[in-house]
Amino acid sequence: MALVSGAKSPLYAQRRRRNGIAMALAYAATAFGLTWLVLILAVLLWNGFSGLSLRVFTEMTPPPGAAGGLLNPILGSIVMTGIAVIIGTPLGILAGTYMAEYGRYDKLSAVVRFINDILLSAPSIVIGLFIYEIMVAQMGHFSAWAGAIALAVIVVPVVVRTTEDMLILVPDTLREAAASIGLPRALMIQKVAYRAARAGMITGVLLAVARISGETAPLLFTALNNQFWSTNMNAPMASLPVVIFQFALSPYKDWQELAWTGALIITLSVLTLSIVARALASQSKSQ
């Protein structure tokens, strides 16, 4: 009988009310989070789309007051991102392979796992300082190589993490089957484990590309910037994020407009990459 009358008691009403408030807050918080995504994307599209034309992709960055495009920073970003991936991916895959295949339970793997997770979220500007110290300061000049290596340092932990995670998901029966026909371990890893984990590992590389293509801080004092077309890896090279940084903070209207257009290009490509990576990952999971 206490139960029945309890349904109308003030305590019950109070609990219901509290619950209602908390649930309303949960809805509101989600709406709040999604609002920012919509707001940021809407502003980007609004401001960036008007400047988007063929010229953006075919002309160099202009001096203030003149018309121009973003060809050299786009090229610079692609070149440096590409080299960073070429350097960082094999290193990351090999390290992840050791942790998942050879030394899954040993001390070295535990330490590397811990350190790698810290590198994964380490401030990227510190990585810029690191490369400045070991490359720019030693060579005496800024260079695209230094920028690419700084980005590679950011690629490594991302790839290590996904490679290890994906290889651990490969069922041991596959490894045992390979071993039972006498396949040496190295070949088993390369021919069986990598193939089984391929989609996940590609996801990792795509996520790494998405991460570095928007990175600005590590390029500021490694690759610096370049107003002109340059393919010389030993000289400063323009990149999209650094040009956005420079142009957005400039007092010139047309530079600021170009910055918005560049921001739109970067965001669209980064978001596309991460959506493709996610799709790949969920596809490989459902298999």
């Binding site: 989600t30 989070g33 999604l34 920012w36 995504l37 707001l39 940021i40 502003v43 980007l44 401001n47 998405a210 293509s213 928007g214 990175e215 600005t216 801080a217 994020p241 956005i244 940084f245 957005a248 903070l249 600021q256 910055a259 918005w260 921001a263 970067i266 965001t267 980064v270 978001l271 991460s274 959506i275 996610r278």
Partner: peptide, 21 residues
């Protein structure tokens, strides 16, 4: 995924958006 996309937006975009908007 939408919430996680917020994490995917490069920080320079937050910067330019923060400054101008």
């Amino acid at each position: 995924i939408a919430i996680e996309l917020l994490a995917g937006i490069p920080s320079i975009i937050y910067g330019i958006w923060g400054l101008f908007v």
